[in-house]
């Protein structure tokens, strides 16, 4: 059963996605259609969760906007997500960084993981 669904999802998966992990600071290039025109909007923030698999995989990006926390959930393989750029990688010990929601300022910082290129080609 699942094999058939996997095969179908495979056709729609995008192979141009960089490797990115929980805690990474990313720029998500979102395709926005306004009437006839299409433009790219960048949403940058910390990846605090990745869930699901295959075509149903999503990731949550959190950022602070004027002192207010904003979170957006993107499907990893959606065409509306034009590109994902990894700006900074972080050392984290859990897969869901929901504890960041209760924090702000200094306590919401993550330890940077160095020695990896930030271009997105680094290993997990």
């Amino acid at each position: 059963m699942n094999r058939i669904i996997n095969d179908i999802e495979k056709e729609y998966l995008r192979d141009d996605r960089p490797q990115f992990d929980i805690g990474d600071l990313v720029d998500v290039h979102v395709r926005i259609v306004e009437g006839e025109k299409e433009r790219i909007q960048i949403f940058s923030g910390t990846v605090i969760a990745r869930k699901g698999s295959g075509m149903r995989e999503t990731f949550t990006v959190r950022r602070m906007v004027q002192g207010e926390g904003v979170e957006r959930v993107f499907p990893v393989n959606a065409p509306s997500v034009a590109d994902i750029k990894v700006r900074r990688r972080a050392k984290v010990r859990r897969s869901k960084l929901y504890f960041l929601r209760g924090r702000r300022g200094k306590s919401a910082r993550l330890k940077e993981r160095r020695g990896h290129s930030a271009s997105g080609s680094a290993q997990a």
């Binding site: 999802e9 056709e11 295959g54 075509m55 499907p75 393989n77 959606a78 065409p79 509306s80």
Partner: peptide, 12 residues
Amino acid sequence: GMTQVTDGQGRV
């Protein structure tokens, strides 16, 4: 079963 795919217009 169910899953998600993209249609031609950039929607999931």
